[in-house]
Nucleic acid binder design. Sequence first.
DNA 1: TTCCTTGCAAATCGTTTGCATAATG
DNA 2: CATTATGCAAACGATTTGCAAGGAA
Lengths: 136, 136
Amino acid sequence: MAVKYSRQRQVIYNFLMSRKDHPTADVVYQNVRQEYPNISLGTVYRNLTLLTNRGEIQRLQVGDGVDRFDADTSRHCHFICSGCGCVTDLPLDCMEDMLADARKKFDGRIDRQSTYFYGLCRDCLNHSADISERDA
Amino acid sequence: MAVKYSRQRQVIYNFLMSRKDHPTADVVYQNVRQEYPNISLGTVYRNLTLLTNRGEIQRLQVGDGVDRFDADTSRHCHFICSGCGCVTDLPLDCMEDMLADARKKFDGRIDRQSTYFYGLCRDCLNHSADISERDA
DNA sequence: TTCCTTGCAAATCGTTTGCATAATG
DNA sequence: CATTATGCAAACGATTTGCAAGGAA
């Protein structure tokens, strides 16, 4: 039950803190491996899960079948682009209101909320505009 | 590309319409099989995916690694109980406001929103109260 | 007849786990 | 020393897919 320090976990956490693009476990693995060549994917998964359970990071399930991880544990929404798959933070003021509203309407205890928005990011919108023009 | 009628798809859709508990593909399979013994899991998955793509049903990813399906395509949130895993509808008035707010703040196109709340349902709350009393 | 759909089984793939060894406290 | 963490590889499990046969338009 007690958690002991491990250099691997530290490196994983540091890497996650350095990124704002919500990398997958495999991306974490590929990057951490450059600094720590012997690390295994299993260790990466184990530590990501451990950190998530301790609330030090957040696990995102955006719907493409691959889990992503976010070192920012503050309450915020995410936008997922259906074009390129990028995931970006989307802080909204009304999250507190929504949570309060949900608590008022639901008979039970609500601890946590997770909200994802889907659509096309600016880059993908521009690309699709280019394509329409070209085809016209 | 053209969709042809199939009895299997009809049965799957009918079953989904009859349930409000957001069943998984396997639950759909087990139930549909009683009426249609030769149907295969692959067919169930194929049709659930097809119906989802056509917007006739909704695919939910509540975070336990198993997809769930909802014949109610109206805009509403879901509550997932961390105790028993049950999934219930949670309609909120403020969803429109939230979507509007997100669209205002985000540079890109937002098509769709998905919101999940997590906590303990009434039954699980009662059970945990029972356990505390018993242990006291 | 043409194209879509099915049943079956095998393949996929992200994630988890068992085990012997290494590191931590 | 007791306990937790690691690396490796095998296991897992939900979902997808290839293919030959069946059904709809």
